[in-house]
């Protein structure tokens, strides 16, 4: 078994050696000469056999299985282009665009999703050249109308969801808002006390690291 060179949950910089020997390198780390080193500025997590680093910041790179929120930016003969707030746009084909059959002789693609529409969608395939394929087949994927959109750092998304969804559930309960979180850091808030929910989400974004985040958010939610 390997040797730990830093404690679990310690802050690391790129190039810092986290462990030596028999560990697997997970997200945010790389292996060099039998040492697992950090790739990013973040918090190291050492598990039984693998090591990962939770980054403090960074953009979104699409990953298969992610549910994201995007904006329709272009329409082709049988597909849509979706902006994902990432270097790579998503491709949504006609077949994946809807559960129902769309007859191109009778409907325009823009009647289904028009340019500027916001959709909640799933990443189903990412090639090595980072061509991103999206799908709306999952039942929770839909076009989002009304409500508000806020951007947070993608690295804060796990904090906003909380353990088993506890953080977002708390915000939902206290504000009666519906909240949808995209893995790419786009958050949709609709209905209820939108202002308050927005403030809570922004608090998570700004103070996303360190302990006692839940108490801080609770305090804001109870204020009004």
């Amino acid at each position: 078994m390997g040797k730990k060179l830093v404690e679990d949950k310690s802050n690391v910089l790129p190039g810092d050696v986290i462990v030596e020997g028999d560990y697997l390198s997970d997200r945010g780390t790389y292996k060099e000469n039998g040492k697992v080193k950090s790739k990013v500025l973040g918090v190291a997590r050492i598990e039984k056999s693998k090591v990962r680093v939770i980054p403090l910041s960074g953009g979104y790179i699409p990953k298969e299985g992610d549910k994201v929120i995007g904006k329709v930016s272009g329409i082709g003969p049988s597909h849509w282009w979706i902006e994902l707030d990432s270097p790579y746009d998503g491709y949504l084909s006609l077949a994946e665009g809807s559960e129902e059959f769309i007859d191109l002789d009778e409907t325009e693609l823009s009647d289904v999703y028009d340019i500027g529409d916001i959709i909640y969608t799933e990443v189903i395939k990412v090639t090595s050249e980072k061509d991103v394929k999206l799908s709306m087949q999952d039942r929770i994927c839909k076009k989002l109308t009304g409500g508000r959109i806020v951007r947070i750092s993608p690295s804060r998304v796990p904090r906003l969801i909380g353990k088993g969804g506890s953080m977002v559930e708390m915000i939902k309960n206290k504000t009666d808002s519906r909240i949808i979180i995209g893995q790419n850091g786009i958050v949709w808030i609709g209905g209820g006390k939108e202002d308050l929910a927005l403030e809570a989400v922004k608090t998570v974004d700004e103070r996303g690291h360190g302990r006692g985040l839940k108490e801080k958010v609770e305090k804001i939610l109870n204020k009004r």
């Binding site: 910089l13 790129p14 190039g15 945010g28 790389y30 060099e32 080193k37 790739k39 990013v40 500025l41 973040g42 980054p55 403090l56 910041s57 960074g58 953009g59 690295s155």
Partner: peptide
Amino acid sequence: LADAGVPMKGL
């Protein structure tokens, strides 16, 4: 670069 969260081998 480190602040931007860009993956790097070191500084």
